[in-house]
Structure formats: structure tokens, C-alpha cells
């Protein structure tokens, strides 16, 4: 056998090394757009920080830039720390997320695995599966609102199965209302998970899977040693998208329950909406919004760091 020759890896396009001069020119040319984007992103945040330190409300009759006249320092933040409604809403949001995202993930992954191979009717099922994602959330909200009425179709179907009349008060029982909301979210957002995971699954090199088969690996071993490691990045992306989106859960839920009964389904977004629209204490709202922004940023930063380490 010949000694190990220095043969480069199979041909791939080598990108030209970056040209510093060109990079500088590019920076100068895009500077106005960058400033605009910076302004759009930074201005609202600065405004929020400013207002969150005041007791300003649109009813006070002074414009927002003069809110410092109502300066209260960190009072809004200390109020937040002891606001049981806020913590309750936060806990409920996390609970919904902890139920919804894993269920959506495993359902989506299962469906994706099913849909990777050809089977009769695949195209039709595929289209049907994607429908919930395309339904306007408000429409979905009304749909589930009607489905879960005590005389609605869900109870009718349950009655048919049970052989007696079932009249569960889905949306007025605090626990069941939360369950109904979770079911609606799973219905609407599993397709997105499915779509992303299917794209990831398809991108796992076929010949590596075939090579594993030829080496005697069964399905589970192949899934564990070839498919999962190669899908890691896309799984993290899918989870991050759903965690962030689910944290903001609002529209469907609000139409179904309005956050009720009582505050039984009041999530962070619903709570903020109510404080903004009904109680009009905007300085406090700004403080809540900032607190959430910071916690979401931490979650995203964590996900991005995981991604970087993975690749």
C-alpha cells in the first residue's frame, strides 16, 4: 500500500477569502439601511425602558416624552415582583408551553418519520396536515370556541362513544378550559413542527442510512446514531421557534376563553393585554414587557449557544 498521500477531500467549492476592502465598501454602502434597522429596533426598547420607570398613563394628559414628570424609579419592577396575577400568568404560560411543545414535537417527529417514505395517498394527507397552520388564528379560536360548547360537537361525539349524554362545561371549568386551550394550540401548531422536522429528516444523507442498514443496524439504532445526530441543529431550531411562539400565545386563546373563567387561562400576553386595554397603566405594562423580553432573550441565547457548540 502506498504511503498516505496528501489528497484533498472530495471537491467542494472553496469560497474566496473575504476581501477586506470589499467588506469595508459593503459596510459603507449598507450603512443607511443599518441605521434605519437599528433605529426601528432600538427606539421602541429605549422608549419602553424610559416609560417603565414612570407612572405614566395615556389618561394623565401629558405626552409620553414628558413622562419623567411622573418618575417613580424601580417601583414598577418591585410591584411586579409581588404581583401574584403576573406570576400566575407566567406560571400558566410556562405550563402551556411545557405541555404543548413536547407534544407538538413528538407528534411532529412521528408524522415526519411517517411521511419520509412514499405511501399511497401521501400527497393528500400531506396537504390536509398543513391546513391547521394556514387557518387564521382568530378563525381557529371561534372554531374551538364552538366545538367546546357544552352542547357542541365535542360533547356530542363523546356522548356517542359513552352511550349517554355527556355535557362537560369545557370552557367554564377552570382546569378543562386550560386543557381546551392546549388542545387547540397542539392542533394548530403541530403541522409547523412536522414541516420543519420533515425537512430535517429529508436532509439526512440517504446513502449513510443505507450504509448503516448494510452494516446490520436496525431501525432504532439508525435513528439514534445517524438520523438524530444529523438532525440536532434543526431540532433545536424547531424547538426554539415553538418555545418563543408558544410563550406569546394569545389570539386563539383569547377568542376561546378571554383568559377566563376568571383568570384560569390568563397567560402573560392576555394579562398584558388586559392591563394595557382595561387598566391603562402603561408604565407598568412597559415594565412587564421588558421583563419578558429579557427572559426570552436568555432562552434564545442559550439555544444559539447550544447550536454553535453542535456545529
Amino acid at each position: 500500500m502506498t504511503e498516505i498521500a496528501d489528497i484533498p477531500p472530495p471537491r467542494t467549492e472553496t469560497p474566496a477569502p473575504p476581501d477586506r476592502e470589499a467588506a469595508r465598501l459593503g459596510f459603507r454602502l449598507t450603512l443607511p439601511a443599518q441605521l434605519l434597522v437599528l433605529f426601528i429596533a432600538v427606539f421602541p426598547i429605549c422608549m419602553q425602558i424610559y416609560i417603565s420607570l414612570t407612572d405614566w398613563s395615556p389618561l394623565d394628559g401629558i405626552p409620553w416624552w414628558r413622562a419623567h414628570e411622573l418618575w417613580i424609579g424601580l417601583t414598577n419592577y418591585s410591584d411586579l415582583a409581588s404581583d401574584f396575577r403576573f406570576w400566575g400568568a407566567l406560571w400558566r404560560t410556562l405550563f402551556v408551553m411545557l405541555v404543548c411543545v413536547p407534544v407538538q414535537f413528538f407528534l411532529g417527529l412521528g408524522l415526519a418519520i411517517l411521511f419520509v417514505d412514499e405511501f399511497p395517498g401521501r400527497r393528500i394527507f400531506y396537504s390536509v396536515l398543513l391546513v391547521p397552520m394556514m387557518v387564521v388564528p382568530a378563525v381557529a379560536g371561534y372554531m374551538f370556541f364552538m366545538l367546546f360548547q357544552s352542547g357542541g360537537p365535542v360533547n356530542d361525539i363523546l356522548s356517542a362513544f359513552a352511550g349517554r349524554t355527556v355535557s362537560i362545561a369545557w370552557l367554564s371549568d377552570p382546569d378543562l378550559a386550560l386543557a381546551a386551550v392546549i388542545i387547540a394550540d397542539i392542533w394548530q401548531w403541530t403541522p409547523l413542527m412536522f414541516l420543519i422536522l420533515l425537512a430535517g429528516l429529508v436532509s439526512v444523507p440517504k446513502d449513510q442510512q443505507l450504509a448503516a442498514v448494510l452494516l446490520g443496524a436496525g431501525w432504532w439504532r439508525r435513528f439514534r446514531t445517524i438520523i438524530l445526530p444529523r438532525m440536532k441543529t434543526i431540532i433545536i431550531i424547531a424547538l426554539a421557534i415553538r418555545v418563543i411562539e408558544n410563550f406569546k400565545i394569545f389570539d386563539t386563546l383569547y377568542i376561546m376563553t378571554g383568559g377566563g373563567p376568571g383568570i384560569a387561562t390568563e397567560t402573560i400576553s392576555v394579562y398584558i393585554y388586559k392591563v394595557t386595554q382595561q387598566e391603562l397603566i402603561w408604565g407598568y405594562v412597559a415594565a412587564i414587557a421588558l421583563a419578558i423580553l429579557i427572559s426570552l432573550s436568555i432562552v434564545s441565547a442559550f439555544a444559539i449557544a447550544r447550536l454553535r457548540r453542535g456545529s
Binding site: 498516505i4 498521500a5 496528501d6 489528497i7 484533498p8 477531500p9 472530495p10
Partner: peptide, 8 residues
């Protein structure tokens, strides 16, 4: 990843 072709 990144080994030469004859090694691969």
C-alpha cells in the same frame, strides 16, 4: 469530517 479522500 475533513479527512483526505484516500483516508475516507
Amino acid at each position: 469530517a475533513g479527512l483526505s479522500v484516500n483516508i475516507l
